[in-house]
Design a binder for these strands. Structure first.
Length: 674
DNA sequence: GACTAACGTTTTTTT
DNA sequence: AACGTTAGTC
C-alpha cells in the first residue's frame, strides 16, 4: 500500500492500531482519506479480518462513500468491513434480537411524519390540547428524553419546572405504549432499544465485542449521549476506538449532540492518542482566511488553525442585494458567466442555504433561466403524498399491526369508510384494547355499524387479506402485485383525477412508477418487503440513479452540505433571522449557527460568494432584513464587499452613454438616408 | 359520506 | 405561498 502521499499526521492516524485514538480533523484536511487508508491498513498490513472492523457514520451518503472507497482499494470477495450509520447498525441488531425485549422482530420504523401522527393521536387520548401544546414540541422533548437514555419509567415530573417538557414527560409513556401497540419503533428507539438490549444481556454485548475488534466513528462531534452509550458498549476491553471529528463543525446540538463527547474524549476513553489534522487541501488561502477569522469568535473549542496549502486565491465576495429575487437572479447570471468564461461545468457550482424553504426561490429562478440543477434532500421523494400512500399500503401488507399506515389508507381512496366509521373503529379499539386490524374482524364492532359501513369494512378487510396473500405467494412479482393493487383499489385513477395540471399528473405517475420499479429491484436482490420499507425510511434519499448522475448546480442546505465540497459556492441569506435562524437567536444557540456558517464556507474550494438581502419574502409577505451579525466577524483581509444596486446603476450609466451614441448614430444615419 | 371553499397556520436543521 | 384543517353543502 502506498502511504507516501500522506502527511506525517495523517500517517500517524493511519498507523496507530491499539488503544483509543482521536483524530481532530479540520475541514478539508483529508479526513475521509485517513479513514479509508486506516481501514485498508488494518486489513492489509496488520492482518485484521475485515469483518471485525466496524465503521459508523451519520448519513447513508457518508457510509455509501466510505464503502465505495474501501471497495476500490480492496479486492476482497465476501468479507468486508461493516460500514453503516448508527441507525441502520442498530436496526440490524434489533431485527435479530429485539424479541428478547418483548417486541416482535417484524416491527415497523416510524419516520418524523408517522411519529407526529401518533403523537397527535396520543394527545387526543390523553386529552392534551394541541393548541396549548404543539405536538412537534412535545415530540422534540420526548426525543430529548430518549437521547439521554431516559425511559418512560425514569421520568421524574417533579424535577421539571416548565410546561412543555412536563407535559411531554407525561405523554411519553402513552406514546411509547402506542408505538408498542403499533409494533413500531421511532428513529430514537432504534438506539434506545439497542443500548437497552446490550445492558440487559451482557452476554450479547460480549458476543458483539468479540466480533468488532476495531471501531471507527466519524463525525464524532455530532454524537449524542445515547450514541456515546452505544459506542462505549460496543468498544470492548481493548478500547480500539478511533473517533474522528471536528468540534468546529458541530451542528447537531438541537438533536442532542454533545460536543463534550469529542472535547473530553479522554473522560470516556483514558489516555487516547491525539492526532490533529490542520493542513487544509481543499480551499484557497482566501477562503480559509475568512473561515478562520469567523471561527475565532466561537467559544470553547479545541484551539486550532487551518493552514492553507493552496496560497492566495480570489477574495471572498460579500454581496448586498435588494431582495431575494435579485439574489437568485444575480447568482444565476454569475454562474452562467463563470461557466462560459471560466470553462466550468454546472456541477462545479453549489448554492447553500440555511433552510429548505429558501431554496424554492432559487429553484424557480434557475428553472426560468434554464440552468440545470439538482436538489439535495429538500422535499424528499419519500415525503411525497402519493409515495407515502403507496408505502402505507405496502406497510399494511407487510405488517398487520401497522396502525398508522392502516388508518392512512383506510379511506384512501374514498371507499365508504368515513369519519364516523373511523371514529367508531378507534373508540372500539381503545375500549377493548384491541388492534385496529383485529377490531375490523370483531363481530361486536361490525354489528354496531350501519349496513353500509359494515359492508365497506368487510370489503376493505377482504381486499387487504387478498393482496397480502398474493404478495406472500409470489415475492418476485411484488411489483406487479402492487400495480394491481393500486389499480384495483382505484387508488391510481383516483389520484390522477385529483390532479389539477398535467404536469402534476405526470410527476405523480412517475413517482409511483419509480416506486414499483424500486420494489421490483429490491425483490430481485432478495430483499424482503420489510427491508424495502426499512430502506425507504432510513435512507430517505431517493435511490434514483438518474438523480445521482444528473448534472447541474447543486442546491443544498448547510446541514446537508457537511462533508461535501464544491469548486464554487454561493452561500445565500446571510441575514439576522435566517442565519442565525430566528429560532436559534431565541433559544440562545447562535454559536451553533456560526459553526453552520463555518461549515458552509469551508465547502468552497476556489470561489466563494456570500450574500444578503434588504427585503425577503416571508409567509408570502415582504419583510425587512438586517445583515447577519456574522458578516462583521469575517475580517477584512480576504473580503471584498459589493453592492448590487450600485453596480446596476453603474452599468445603467454605461448603458445610457451607449444609448446616447447609439441614437446619435441612428439620427445621423437617418439624415444621410434622406 | 364526499366534495368544496374558506380559514388558519406554518418554518430550522436530519436519522 | 402552500399546506392541512374545518365548516358547510349536496
Amino acid at each position: 500500500m502506498d502511504l507516501e502521499n500522506l502527511n506525517p499526521q495523517q500517517l500517524q492516524a493511519v498507523r496507530h492500531s491499539e488503544g483509543p485514538l482521536i483524530v481532530v480533523a479540520g475541514a478539508g484536511s483529508g479526513k475521509t482519506r485517513v479513514i479509508t487508508y486506516r481501514i485498508i491498513h488494518l486489513i492489509k498490513e496488520k492482518g485484521i479480518p475485515p469483518e471485525s472492523i466496524l465503521a459508523i457514520t451519520f448519513t447513508n451518503k457518508a457510509a455509501g462513500e466510505m464503502k465505495e472507497r474501501v471497495r476500490n482499494m480492496l479486492d476482497l470477495r465476501g468479507a468486508f468491513p461493516w460500514i453503516s450509520t448508527f441507525h441502520s447498525f442498530c436496526l440490524r441488531i434489533l431485527r435479530r434480537h429485539i424479541s428478547e425485549l418483548g417486541f416482535s422482530n417484524d416491527f415497523a420504523i416510524y419516520d418524523a411524519q408517522d411519529q407526529l401522527t401518533l403523537v397527535k393521536q396520543c394527545m387526543k387520548v390523553a386529552q392534551i390540547s394541541a393548541d396549548a401544546f404543539p405536538p412537534k414540541t412535545l415530540l422534540h422533548h420526548i426525543s430529548g428524553f430518549k437521547n439521554d437514555f431516559l425511559l418512560p419509567e425514569d421520568m421524574q415530573p417533579e424535577t421539571m419546572s416548565y410546561g412543555h417538557q412536563l407535559k411531554a414527560a407525561g405523554l411519553y409513556s402513552v406514546y411509547q405504549s402506542a408505538l408498542k401497540k403499533n409494533n413500531a419503533l421511532d428513529f430514537d428507539d432504534l438506539l434506545v432499544f439497542t443500548v437497552q438490549l446490550f445492558q440487559e444481556y451482557p452476554s450479547l454485548r460480549t458476543h458483539y465485542n468479540d466480533i468488532f475488534r476495531y471501531i471507527l466513528v466519524d463525525e464524532f462531534q455530532d454524537t449524542n449521549g445515547l450514541q456515546m452509550d452505544l459506542v462505549m458498549q460496543l468498544v470492548g476491553p481493548q478500547h480500539n476506538i478511533c473517533a474522528v471529528g471536528d468540534d468546529d463543525q458541530s451542528i447537531y446540538g438541537w438533536r442532542g449532540a454533545q460536543v463534550t463527547n469529542i472535547l473530553q474524549f479522554e473522560r470516556f476513553f483514558p489516555n487516547p492518542k491525539v492526532v490533529r489534522l490542520e493542513d487544509n487541501y481543499r480551499s484557497t488561502e482566501a477562503i480559509l482566511g475568512v473561515a478562520n477569522e469567523l471561527i475565532k469568535h466561537s467559544p470553547s473549542r479545541h484551539e486550532k488553525t487551518l493552514r492553507a496549502t493552496i496560497k492566495g486565491g480570489e477574495k471572498v465576495v460579500l454581496m448586498a442585494l435588494p431582495g431575494d429575487e435579485e439574489e437568485a437572479n444575480w447568482a444565476a447570471k454569475e454562474i452562467k458567466k463563470l461557466r462560459t468564461k471560466g470553462d466550468r461545468r454546472w456541477e462545479d457550482f453549489a448554492i447553500l442555504f440555511r433552510t429548505n424553504i429558501h431554496i424554492r426561490k432559487v429553484e424557480q429562478v434557475l428553472r426560468e433561466q434554464d440552468i440545470p440543477y439538482r436538489l439535495i434532500g429538500a422535499q424528499s421523494f419519500f415525503d411525497r403524498r402519493e409515495v407515502r400512500d403507496v408505502l402505507a399500503y405496502l406497510q399494511v401488507l407487510a405488517n398487520p399491526l401497522a396502525d398508522v399506515a392502516l388508518l392512512r389508507i383506510l379511506n384512501t381512496p374514498p371507499r365508504g369508510i368515513g369519519a364516523n366509521t373511523a371514529m367508531l373503529l378507534l373508540e372500539h379499539c381503545r375500549e377493548k384494547g384491541m388492534q385496529t386490524w383485529a377490531t375490523m374482524h370483531d363481530e361486536s364492532f361490525t354489528s354496531e355499524l350501519s349496513k353500509k359501513g359494515a359492508g365497506a369494512i368487510r370489503n376493505f378487510v377482504e381486499l387487504i387479506g387478498n393482496f397480502r396473500q398474493r404478495v406472500e405467494e409470489n415475492r418476485m412479482k411484488a411489483g406487479e402485485v402492487l400495480r394491481d393493487l393500486l389499480t384495483e383499489t382505484d387508488y391510481l385513477p383516483w389520484m390522477m383525477r385529483s390532479c389539477r395540471t398535467d404536469e402534476e399528473r405526470e410527476q405523480r405517475r412517475e413517482a409511483v412508477g419509480e416506486l414499483v420499479v424500486a420494489l421490483t429491484d429490491a425483490m430481485k436482490k432478495g430483499k424482503t418487503l420489510q427491508q424495502f420499507l426499512d430502506d425507504a425510511v432510513l435512507d430517505a434519499e431517493p435511490e434514483d440513479e438518474e438523480l445521482e448522475n444528473k448534472s447541474g448546480v447543486t442546491l443544498i442546505t448547510l446541514h446537508a452540505s457537511k462533508g461535501l465540497e464544491y469548486p464554487i459556492v454561493f452561500l445565500m441569506g446571510l441575514e439576522e433571522g435566517v442565519l442565525p435562524h430566528r429560532r436559534s437567536i431565541e433559544e440562545g444557540t447562535r454559536d451553533e449557527e456560526r459553526r453552520l456558517l463555518y461549515v458552509g464556507i469551508t465547502r468552497a474550494q476556489q470561489l466563494l460568494y456570500l450574500s444578503y438581502c434588504d427585503m425577503r419574502k416571508k409567509y408570502g409577505e415582504l419583510v425587512r432584513c438586517e445583515p447577519s451579525s456574522f458578516t462583521a466577524e469575517l475580517g477584512e483581509e480576504w473580503i471584498v464587499e459589493r453592492d448590487y444596486l450600485e453596480e446596476m446603476n453603474a452599468v445603467a450609466d454605461e448603458d445610457d452613454v451607449e444609448d446616447f451614441f447609439g441614437s446619435m448614430r441612428a439620427m445621423l444615419e437617418g439624415e444621410g438616408g434622406q
